[in-house]
């Protein structure tokens, strides 16, 4: 067994309570989440101030008043409710890094782009999938500035006197709850990797440029 301290790298996802921010736009792409001028960084941190840059600031770099996340209490939201196909476009992990750095650790949408969805889990962000009807219902809580709670362990969103169940892959859930580091988990299977490589060296030697 590996030491717990080596395997846990990511921040654990516990339950969460926050007034959600609501961005009712469909197909928000990764260029909208974090435009390319901020991809020149060699760090993972510090991107929060540039999250949704084009929608958030005017040409002079001043905050645009009408943009939700520029206003109390949404500038402190930990939960973002948004339109379908969120995170489409590029593979840039800068998108979840920017969300995380801003303080958002849970996104709720009716669908996500595959790569973005995967990237969230690697960074301790929970992307929840709900149907449009439920999303409309939850968005009311954003408008009324009321808190909602996320209980990952029981796969529940609690709002007012109601609750909704959500689906999540059991392995991904476990990794989030325990903050498990994928690489350490995979390296526990080093023997299998070694024997696979050995097999391939015989069967398809050209793969190794032989």
């Amino acid at each position: 067994m590996m030491l717990e301290s080596i395997i846990t790298k990511m921040k654990k996802f516990n339950s969460l309570k926050s007034i959600p921010a609501y961005l009712p736009i469909v197909n928000i792409d990764t260029d909208m989440i974090i435009p390319k001028q901020f991809l020149k960084t060699i760090k993972r941190t510090g991107l929060g101030k540039n999250l949704f840059f084009e929608m958030r600031y005017d040409d002079n770099g001043k905050e645009i008043k009408e943009f939700t996340l520029n206003n109390e209490p949404y500038n402190n939201s930990k939960i973002l409710i948004t339109g379908n196909n969120f995170g489409c476009g590029s593979s840039r992990e800068h998108a979840p890094w920017a969300l995380l750095d801003f303080g958002i650790t849970c996104v709720i949408s009716s669908s996500y782009a595959d790569i973005f969805y995967n990237n969230c889990f690697k960074n301790g962000i929970l992307p929840i999938i709900l149907n449009e009807e439920k999303i409309k219902e939850l968005s009311e809580y954003s408008k009324r500035k009321e808190e909602i709670s996320i209980d990952l362990n029981n796969q529940k969103i609690i709002y007012g006197n109601n609750e909704i169940k959500f689906e999540i892959d059991s392995f991904k859930k476990k990794c989030l709850l325990e903050g498990l580091d994928d690489i350490s988990l995979s390296l526990e299977k080093l023997d299998q990797i070694l024997s696979y490589e050995k097999k391939i060296m015989n069967k398809k030697p050209w793969i190794f440029n032989d």
Binding site: S91, P96, I115, N118, N119, K122, N123, I183, L187, I193
Partner: peptide, 21 residues
């Protein structure tokens, strides 16, 4: 052939494998 995020790039560099469904 498919695109991956930076954490996955690190995973591939370290293990030459990728976790997938």
């Amino acid at each position: 052939a498919f695109g991956i995020g930076t954490s996955e790039v690190e995973h591939v560099l370290a293990t030459q494998t990728l976790v997938q469904k």
